[in-house]
Design a protein around this nucleic acid. Structure first.
Lengths: 197, 197
DNA sequence: GGTCCTAACAAACAGTTGTTATAATGACTG
DNA sequence: CAGTCATTATAACAACTGTTTGTTAGGACC
């Protein structure tokens, strides 16, 4: 049985592989230069293809962007859910979530970092699609913070933005060599819990 | 004495006004759509001019971007320095700096917010020019944090990134109506100092 | 009045953009 | 071997990009 035949029987076509390759190439370039500065020709070249051919796999650039964004959300959501699974203590759950968040961001996959890019300046139609995807990830953190034992006067929404701001902003400065992503994530949660004074 | 003559005597040309108008139009659009998605024709139209005419005032789009960015740094630096001037207590100094930072960002000037945009994906030659400008602002916060009475094992560089991350990230979600910018800034510093548990 | 400078317009430049229509390739099927 | 279908190449499209050029109107200065 040839490889092709087996793939066919499993409902997989060659296009499924190429589709993944295109998404990987796109995510790589999106991270490097942003959506606007990455042309369809750039992505095609990176994947060893011509620009027109990509439209067999994705019907528009916007759909390709959304696909990579969604893949990023899928990967980081899975990682955070796995990391908190079975952990009881609320603060420990948040710590493990932050660590998993950071490890996924800087663990080599080019998809998840896309969720940390500021999309407030992207075109409205695309933006609304991306917001919906990211909100479903942010909800994980909202739930984690909801479970924290806090004083009544603490704005939990603001607290989530506080933590996610620090975590996400790290994508604009983090370089390997200093503290590890896990150490950074744990540090931010610890400061938030214990304070400094 | 005509208006033109007085302007001339003060060393001001009409071009100085138009230059400011161009920068204001550019900053407005840069905030709305980002650098790449804002064309020179967009800016010119916003300022009531034709695209080619702008090259009398700025020799390139990159120079115009840098000029707006620098103006933003000038405004927010002044605000933070004034807010901390004469304040003694290190934590209170940081609190006042955070409040001034937020008040300037959301106080209606379109320049300062530009400093909070993630520039890690902008073209290298432009990026290096912007980094240099922003670093000179970040230094203000580095100094403020350096003066905090902290345990020896606290990474002060990481602490600055922690706070600036939260503050800067607010530009991607803040909308008028909830907590004021000043309240948000003060909250982030208070959580950092006192913790939650 | 002649000359110079400021400031803007008008039109074009070459290159790039996302996208589309059509044709070619090539592997599997019967 | 002929036919089918998935996948890619080719070539073109109109629109837009930053920038340059030649020109012009108007005021200031000697």
């Amino acid at each position: 049985m040839t490889e092709k035949t087996r793939a066919r029987e499993e409902g997989l076509h060659r296009s499924d592989n190429r589709r993944q390759e295109l998404m990987a190439a796109a995510a790589y370039l999106f991270n490097q230069r942003g959506y606007d500065a990455t042309s369809m020709r750039d992505i095609a070249r990176e994947a060893g293809m011509l620009a027109g051919s990509m439209y067999y796999h994705f019907s528009s650039k916007e759909d390709l962007i959304v696909a990579t964004y969604e893949e990023g959300k899928r990967l980081i959501s899975t990682a955070v859910l796995e990391a908190t699974d079975g952990v009881e203590d609320p603060w420990e759950r948040l710590t493990q979530a932050a660590i998993a968040h950071m490890n996924t961001l800087f663990g080599g996959n080019n998809f998840s970092i896309l969720l940390c890019a500021d999309i407030s300046r992207t075109a409205p139609t695309l933006r609304s699609r991306l917001i919906e995807i990211r909100d479903s990830y942010d909800k994980l953190f909202m739930d984690l913070i909801e479970d924290l034992p806090l004083a009544d006067d603490i704005d939990k929404g603001l607290l989530r933005l506080n933590l996610l701001g620090s975590l996400n902003w790290s994508t604009s400065w983090y370089r390997p060599g200093g503290q590890t992503p896990a150490q950074i994530g744990a540090f931010f949660v610890r400061v938030m819990r214990d304070g400094l004074a």
